[in-house]
Write a protein that binds this DNA or RNA. Structure first.
Lengths: 228, 228
DNA sequence: TAGAATAAGTGTAATTTTTACGTTTATTTA
DNA sequence: TAAATAAACGTAAAAATTACACTTATTCTA
């Protein structure tokens, strides 16, 4: 380390992950019971400290994988929260990340281990520090993200019905759309593949299953896509 | 500080400011000659370290005011850059901010003092560390921002002509628009006030001056505005 | 002082996108 | 085989976007 930097303060740097999942009806966020003082036992985002030898991004990935058992998860940085008094126990700045996972992938065992559980965005309990702000901001980001990025890639099973996809967008925007117009618009983007296979549990007729076509999407993205 | 946090590493935390201005034709970024080792004398964003007693946001405001002599500047957080080796001299994470200022407000004296100068976004010289990435990302953010926020508030003089406003948007998007359609769209938003006054230096006929109406804009924003 | 030169200001038709809205179809079960 | 269920599908009206060129106000100069 160069001498020039010696005079400056060093701060604790944490990461916190807002993890979203979709249960078919609602967008949910994964919260854990905080495992250390202060505020031990209260609801909290999953977080951890950044060590000197890892990048901030790697720290977030580590925390996420540790909690969910998943790697290759969609994750992006949300915002750095840097208020002096944001952590009751001392000066800690936190870089918040938000992640999208397929709710079913989440391992029940880990859920137990970390005393984690899914909470509807409309019924978030009291959470520690500034985590409420983090969650609020991440929802805004999710809504904004969903305009240009097919979040269904991450939040739905590989094969899904048009109804499921629509329910997802309705949950994200807390709004309802016309079925015909929704289908029309999504299909016009030409990023879905309709399978011959049908999902038969929800109706007698059965509904077609679709998959996202990542190649088509990437092609489209270059031109500046707008999903909704 | 609680004991629970004692084991964790503390890191140097910096802020870097990407400062945009508009000269009537081009979007420019303000760069300074770096004043400390390593890489002293090379082009750099204006930055500084976050002290233990100030918020990250306050640090960015301080750095910005110190360089430009301006307060009440539009500024928002861009991204936290946290790679282990991003700073050649040691582990420093940097929170980048981007700011929009009226180029003319910028004090010549400070420009001298910090060896600062404006650089066209298309001709950014070699800059230290990961500042090139920061600048690139901030341009993306500016473009995205300009869709929903009237950046002219910040980048143009209080009174401006339709031509100046169009030139600004053309510079941001590196694109050209039809004059009639541009005017039509902007006026339809109803956030401009046309003055009786005219700007006569650029033409014999003279062009009307406009001002932004912040009240009308705030009203519109609640409904979810789209500027372009 | 009339006309030439300059840049500003303005309108309309064609196309595309978005919205609103109800009926038909495939399948199962009684 | 009829009834019930949810899926699939199309069209007309409205709104937004695009493409496109002439008129106007003013000044300068001949």
């Amino acid at each position: 380390m160069t001498k020039a930097y010696n005079n400056h303060d060093r701060l604790l740097v944490a990461v916190d992950c807002i993890i979203f999942g979709f249960d078919g009806t609602e967008i949910k966020a994964l919260l854990v019971k905080r495992s250390l003082e202060p505020e031990k036992g209260k609801w909290s985002l999953m977080g951890g400290f950044v060590s000197a030898k890892e990048s901030v991004h790697d720290a977030a990935t580590r925390v996420l994988e540790n909690l969910t058992g998943l790697d290759n998860v969609y994750m992006e940085q949300l915002h750095c929260f840097g208020d002096v008094k944001r952590d009751a126990a001392g000066r800690v700045i936190s870089v918040a990340y938000f992640a999208l996972i397929k709710l079913d992938d989440y391992k029940e065992a880990l859920l137990q281990k970390h005393q984690a559980s899914w909470h509807s965005l409309h019924k978030i309990p009291a959470v520690v520090f500034d985590h409420k702000k983090m969650i609020a901001l991440s929802l805004e980001r999710l809504q904004q993200k969903a305009i240009a990025y097919p979040i269904g890639f991450e939040l739905l099973p590989t094969k899904f019905t048009m109804q499921q996809l629509q329910a997802l967008y309705e949950a994200v925007y807390n709004n309802s759309f016309d079925k015909r117009n929704f289908t029309k618009k999504i299909l016009s983007l030409n990023i879905l593949n309709r399978l011959t296979e049908k999902e038969k549990t929800t109706s007698r007729k059965g509904s077609f299953l679709y998959t996202f076509d990542k190649k088509k999407y990437n092609l489209l993205k270059k031109q500046g896509i707008k999903l909704l």
